[in-house]
Design a binder for these strands. Structure first.
Length: 834
RNA sequence: GCCCGAGUGGUGGAAUUGGUUUACACGCACGACUUAAAAUCGUGUGCCGUAAGGCAUGUGGGUUCGACUCCCACCUCGGGCACCA
């Protein structure tokens, strides 16, 4: 008898599947529905870690199951290969990022093949391939033509270590999400995507998606919709040298307008210089100097005390003409709303703290129905208005509307919706990325590269280190590409004079915002993907990935999809119908795996020890896919034990007698588990799927004992149930022991016998006064009277009925019977729906 | 502070629509095989109790014949947003 030797069989079958082109995916197969199963493509960092296995091996179970159920499944793979880590690694090793990346891709491809997944390698997409990034550039141009890509001077997040700007989404608690360095703010000209134009649709069109609530709320929070009123305050005093003497504020509490005792501008507010009175100019300049020295993180730190300065200028309350002083303070954010607020210290805790510090007046205008000492704390809830002229006595919710209406009448305000979401800064001052296909001409300004010129290839550079600082670029710029002087030279498409190529490259999130489209038509030379091919596969049916992309990649891809939809290139407006986030695999010590902690589990090592099938199955068995959890070195042994047992179970059939008498029992067991395991996989509940296989094996071993075996078709079914989880294992036994001539992975998922399941005996729970006292096994659909009779005939159970007046019953067919006392206040005794 | 999600044995976790809590594993204990160990196999394993029985799904209440599941309040953990006006 052969022993289970995964190392030997796994390589063999991987080669066999490849030679037979088993994972090659056709665009369409007659009578089959297509299913696109997607997992986020990996970054070629150099080595596959256990998280990669979790990302690719576990969804593969679903892919194989769907294939067996008659779907034409595409499970594509590619590499998200531009980006900072490659560049930093290449700088460290003094090699070219392309070489480093290509080497990693080659190595990781080998590792990925060891998983035994159904990847269709013929559709591989690499973002660094000019045939791919040609279309990244093309899409940029289409967006530019529509005004969805634009260049502007803006305050941006600058990472001093990586020497590049970062998108808002890439700043985590004030630090660079790649290297953890505190981010500073810089004023620069940058290329932007107008994602804010889609804010409302990104909110609305999410509702129908089958996504976890956590992601939806994360995106809603990120978009941060806020409905309120914009109010114009006229600036008071003729000496001011301003054309349009208004300060605009945004508020969600227009009802507190009469309680506004001062106005606050963010330190970067553009009107400050024009407003400040002569006697205040010294203090104000001083203050602005101090604020400038602080990082954004320090400024927005909630712990710190608010600081500010008076400008000496005033505005007028638009409804009663009251004179209100204008202050500058660091607790107002320049980039949100209008960068200015009306301060209502009686009804806003922040304003309250500031007012107390600088002795500014408080005026309560919303009176709560509980006690409130307005000298102690702001009251931020709803109430009834007072000291608010004609609005006195109104409920604050109503006053909000009426005051806004009044302001609209007076042309001093209007209803407004404000979003927290910012436009996406896409340009990067680094080498290893897609060149932005724009040309700068001194006389004509920025011009787009003509489509015929695409792709603008990334030039080979000896020195590709980032420039030392992020100072605003001159004509030549300071991105590494600015050193490629020959490459930069070009003609202006407009005036034909000498001009220069744009030297910034794109954020890698641009590359990954559309890669899934390319899988449907990876070699197309005319368009990023043909509509016809896309209709076969898109939108993606099920997308597996990491939670770190909740407000980044997932949001960006949704934006790209909507924009391409509006441009008419695709026929759907949401990219991913269903999303499952995977959990994090931790070290055995329940800590994040890291080399310094010495708790790293190397998947290659585990494969060497136990085989790929065991690793796959253990990952599936650990727990719900969304949870992840600590790697348990004992736990994987359990799975290894199981596969060995299953191996012997099938092998032993060779030298055992056939069992015939138990055929209906066998069929019942199989029916039960075919149904159960299929149900589990379909719902991505891989852990209970594995336990189902274990239960099935336990039951069969118990049934057969030492002597008996099943008929061959049952062993076939048994292996088919295992095939999605342990594809090599199942293939080996299928072909070598059961002597089939074609792959098990071309087989259909076994059918279960519904009739036999319907006839299965069931357990009826027997309760007395709500307490479970026994269980009886019966046929289905027995009537209450028959169950009662069984209970009365049962020695033990009937004992409970003596001496007690248990003469009421609750009876739920096929579930339970509950005997109850006929209590005087006895309430409803029938189930709710009767 | 606001918004999501989750709390079940020593551990990972099961429990279709409210209906036997703790499936399947891990660990542990005992036993078999062995000169021995490993491996393998078998038995047991929520807590208290000799037992009958009682008590247990973060805590406290509620709805219900019956609650891990539904409702209310609180506690703890994980995540998102955060001087967002």
């Amino acid at each position: 008898m052969k022993k289970y030797n995964p190392q030997k069989i796994e390589k063999k079958w991987q080669r066999y599947w490849e030679a037979k082109k088993l994972h090659h995916t056709e665009d369409a197969i007659k009578d089959k529905d297509n299913f696109m199963l997607l997992t986020e493509f990996p970054y070629p960092s150099g080595d596959l870690h256990i998280g990669h296995w979790y990302a690719f091996a576990t969804p593969d179970i679903l892919g194989r199951y769907l294939t067996m159920n008659g779907y034409n499944v595409m499970y594509p793979i590619g590499f998200d290969a531009f980006g900072l880590p490659a560049e930093n690694a290449a700088i460290q090793r003094n090699i070219n990022p392309r070489d480093w990346t290509e080497e990693n891709i080659a190595y990781m491809t080998k590792q990925l093949k060891s998983i035994g997944a159904r990847f269709d390698w013929s559709r591989t997409v690499k973002t660094i391939d000019p045939n791919y990034y040609k279309w990244t550039q093309w899409i940029f141009l289409k967006f530019y033509e529509k005004g969805l890509a634009y260049r502007t001077k803006t305050k941006v997040n600058w990472c001093p270590k990586d020497k590049t700007v970062l998108a808002n989404e890439q700043v985590i608690s004030g630090c660079c999400d790649r290297c953890g360095t505190p981010v500073i703010q810089k004023e620069r000209e940058q290329w932007m995507f107008k994602i804010t134009e889609y804010a409302q649709r990104l909110l609305d069109e999410m509702n129908s998606l089958d996504w976890p609530e956590t992601i939806k709320t994360a995106q809603r929070n990120w978009i941060g919709k806020s409905q309120g009123t914009k109010i114009k305050f006229k600036v008071h005093g003729a000496s001011l040298n301003i054309k349009d003497p208004f300060i605009e504020v945004f508020t969600t509490r227009a009802d507190t307008l009469f309680g506004a005792t001062y106005i606050v501008l963010a330190p970067e507010h553009e009107l400050i210089a024009k407003l400040v009175t002569n006697d205040c100019i010294g203090q104000v300049n001083n203050y602005l100097e101090q604020v400038k020295k602080k990082t954004e993180f320090e400024r927005t730190n909630l712990e710190k005390e608010k600081t500010g300065v008076n400008t000496g200028a005033f505005v007028l309350n638009p409804l009663n003409g009251e004179k209100i002083p204008i202050w500058i303070a660091d607790y107002v954010i320049g980039s949100y709303g209008t960068g200015a607020v009306m301060a209502v210290p009686a009804h806003d805790q922040r304003d309250f703290e500031f007012a107390k510090k600088y002795s500014l007046p408080l005026r309560p205008v919303v009176i709560p129905n509980q006690n409130w000492n307005f000298e102690e704390k702001a009251y931020e809830g709803e109430g009834v208005l007072s000291e608010s002229d004609q609005f006195n006595g109104l409920k604050s919710e109503v006053a909000r509307e009426e005051i806004t209406e009044k302001l609209t009448e007076n042309k001093a305000g209007f209803k407004e919706t404000v979003y927290r979401l910012h436009d996406w800064v896409l340009s990067r001052q680094r080498y290893w990325g897609v060149p932005i296909p724009m040309i700068y001409c001194q006389s004509c300004g920025y011009q787009k590269v003509s489509e015929k010129e695409l792709p603008i290839k990334l030039p080979e550079l000896q020195d590709f280190k980032p420039a030392d600082d992020g100072s605003p670029r001159g004509k030549a710029g300071n991105s590494p590409l600015a050193r490629a002087s020959d490459w930069m030279k070009t003609k202006c498409p407009h005036c034909k004079k000498d001009a220069q190529k744009e030297t910034d490259t794109m954020d890698t999130f641009v590359d990954s915002s559309w890669y899934f489209l390319r899988y449907t038509d990876p070699k197309n030379k005319k368009i990023f993907a043909s509509k016809e091919k896309m209709t076969h596969w898109l939108p993606v049916h099920h997308y597996f990935g990491g939670a770190e992309h909740n407000t980044m990649h997932l949001l960006y891809s949704r934006f790209f999809t909507k924009a391409l939809f509006d441009l008419g290139y695709i026929d759907f407006n949401e990219p991913f119908l269903k999303r499952t986030n995977r959990g994090f695999i931790l070290g055995p010590d329940n800590q994040k795996m890291s080399k310094s902690k010495g708790n790293v589990i190397d998947p290659d090592e585990e494969v060497k020890k136990y085989g790929a099938d065991t690793v796959r199955m253990y990952l599936a068995f650990m727990g719900p896919y969304e949870n992840g959890g600590p790697w348990n070195p004992q736990g994987i042994k359990g799975v290894s034990r199981f596969l060995n047992r299953a191996w012997n179970f099938v092998q032993n059939s060779q030298n055992k007698k056939r069992a015939t008498k138990n055929d209906s029992t066998t069929e019942l067991i199989f029916s039960k588990f075919i149904k159960e395991i299929g149900h589990d996989i379909k719902n991505s509940r891989f852990n209970t799927g594995v336990s189902g296989l274990m239960k099935l094996t336990n039951e069969l071993e118990r049934l057969l004992g030492q002597k008996f075996k099943l008929s061959k078709n049952y062993y076939e079914i048994y292996l088919k149930l295992l095939a999605p989880f342990a594809p090599h294992f199942a293939e080996e036994l299928w072909q070598e022991i059961l002597e089939n001539k074609t792959s098990i992975h071309l087989e259909s998922w076994p059918r279960f016998n519904k009739n036999i399941l319907d006839k299965e005996m069931i357990n009826i729970i027997i309760q007395f006064n709500g307490k479970t006292r026994g269980v009886i096994k019966t046929h289905k659909d027995l009537k209450e009277e028959s169950i009662k009779a069984i209970v009365l005939n049962d020695l033990k159970l009937s004992g409970y009925l003596k001496n007690k007046s248990l003469n009421k019953t609750v009876f739920i067919q096929n579930k339970l019977i509950n005997f109850l006392p006929n209590a005087p206040e006895s309430r409803r005794l029938l189930p709710k729906d009767e």
